[in-house]
Amino acid sequence: MNIAFIGCMVMNREINYEVSQSKNRVRTWWLRQGLHDTPGILKNTLQDMIDRVEDYQQTLDEDKQFDYICLGYGLCSNGILGIMSRTIPVIVPRCDDCISLFLGSADQYRSLFRKYPGAYWYNTGWIEQAFTPSKQSYERHRHKYLQQYDEETVTYLMEKEMEWTAKYNYGVYIQSPVYDCAENESYAQEASQLFGWKYQKESGTRLFFYTLVNGPWKEADFLVCPPGHKICPDYSTAKIKAVYVQNLHKKQNL
């Protein structure tokens, strides 16, 4: 089977590993990490990418055409709501965000969310691709602000920006099953110590990533959104559902 995978760069090591081992032919498209901070932009970027994959599909020989588009996204601040493909089924994990994907299931995330109230999560993907709180990253912010603002304002901004760290209790590092990096683990440990958080380590699993690329996509864990249906909120542990879209030709109204 041929799969078009569109995902967040945060999971590129895990997905690339699965792609290398998969019997499926998978082509990957990556979007930058952090789009969940601006859900509207995430939605537009993702929809644009799906549209481009569908256009690209028209140029492919029949045996190379994609059977499915798989999304490396959870709800991600509801940034995936309203997304649709006109011609290719879209597979979406049923979870809040990539923390569930790295942990292997939405249930595991819910359970650890309760076990570690006020947790900041670290792993290789976030450390490599995202802003993660640490001495080094805040020093970079401070330096950046100094180019723009006076010293007093920078001190104020840094105080405000770091205020939240006092409210958190745990720094949790998720160990990747495909890439062991002692340096990143030390980074999480040092940051946890700096902010006064209790350091914890949890094992990630390949389960969600493996299944996303290989299937089968069980109803409990994945939404199979048929062509001409858009992804809508479900407001239960199912998280999302597929809703048929009428007047498909009015693309701008979707």
Binding site: L75, S77, N78, D96, R110, Y235
Partner: peptide, 8 residues
């Protein structure tokens, strides 16, 4: 609420 996890 900022998170889909907590909005419930």
């Amino acid at each position: 609420a900022l998170l889909t996890t907590t909005m419930e």
